[in-house]
Design a protein around this nucleic acid. Structure first.
Lengths: 161, 161
DNA sequence: AGGGTTAGCTTCAAGCTTGAACCACTGGGA
DNA sequence: TCCCAGTGGTTCAAGCTTGAAGCTAACCCT
């Protein structure tokens, strides 16, 4: 391997700070949701994504992609959420190979109940205290990383990049 | 609960992008280190922290704090790393209540061998492609979040905040 | 129509993390 | 000196994630 291109001081600072964020922010978000609604951040993302789909319905593989989880993980999570009564599985009537997840009324209520506290946590930990220029750069940086992680630059439409 | 303060469009974009980063960047870093050195990102952080301590030695609880992990998790990881011969545990000679982790020569070699590829991955996924202003804002934002997560603002010296 | 291939989803074993319980050592006070 | 509270570290059961293997349904090709 050629001489490694080490990071300079500014880059190291930024990287250390970012890795601290990666270690701790998910735990902090999990803690709030678990305490208040007995949901992990991943659970919440699943239900939240589902609540935004037309008919509150989505195919499992679409859902897995939307929350960046493996199908195996999603299958387990959906099983637990189904046992809890917040969603149900049913085969796609048009193609029995697909399975749809459908948010139940109880699931909708849960999302409605959980959202304010979660948003408040996101504000508290991240958004509040940043000015609009910092928020803009944050989006740029995160989109840049997203593009790199999936090597073929596929855009993330919800984030506008 | 009072009317929730929802996020505006820019804030939502930034938040979606950031949560994508949190889900996927750790997996990408793990993948590179596992493939090339059979280490998780967490393992690497432990060894790397240890390699920077005077005498390549640290108390387990200090190490746990440095990598933002629970003592229980660190205990398991250190046990595995010890079985692998890259570090050893020994009681603190000055106070047998403490346990020190000491990086072995094999461990030092492993860090030296793993570092270039890891830095290259960090460059590839994050640093390269950002200009110095973006890097600066990234550090500011990550430090802001760090400060919020541990409510008493305790500073993270390595990141200069 | 029928056999083979592929895609979607589930299941299973293996490994990891968590939190509680537990053990060991120290330091302080009666 | 002896006990006791507190701290550092380990262990254990429970739960979660992963990746491989398995199952089923649909598509394709002849």
């Amino acid at each position: 391997m050629a001489q490694p291109r080490w990071l300079n001081d500014d880059e190291v600072s930024a990287w250390i700070a970012l890795s601290g964020l990666m270690f701790r922010l998910p735990a902090a978000l999990d803690a709030q949701l678990l305490r208040d609604n007995n949901l992990t951040f991943f659970d919440y993302m699943v239900l939240s994504m589902l609540s935004m789909k037309p008919g509150r319905t989505a195919r499992l593989s679409d859902l897995a992609a939307a929350v960046y989880g493996s199908l195996s993980r999603l299958s387990n999570v959906v099983k637990r959420l189904e046992q809890r009564g917040v969603l149900r599985r049913e085969p796609d009537p048009e193609n029995a190979r697909y399975t749809q997840a459908v948010l139940t009324d109880a699931g909708w209520d849960l999302v409605v109940r959980a959202a304010p506290g979660h948003v408040e946590a996101v504000r508290h930990y991240v958004i509040d205290g940043l000015d609009s220029q910092q928020i803009d750069v944050l989006r740029q940086v995160a989109c840049h990383v997203a593009r790199k992680v999936e090597e073929q630059p596929p855009t993330c439409p919800e984030a506008g990049c």
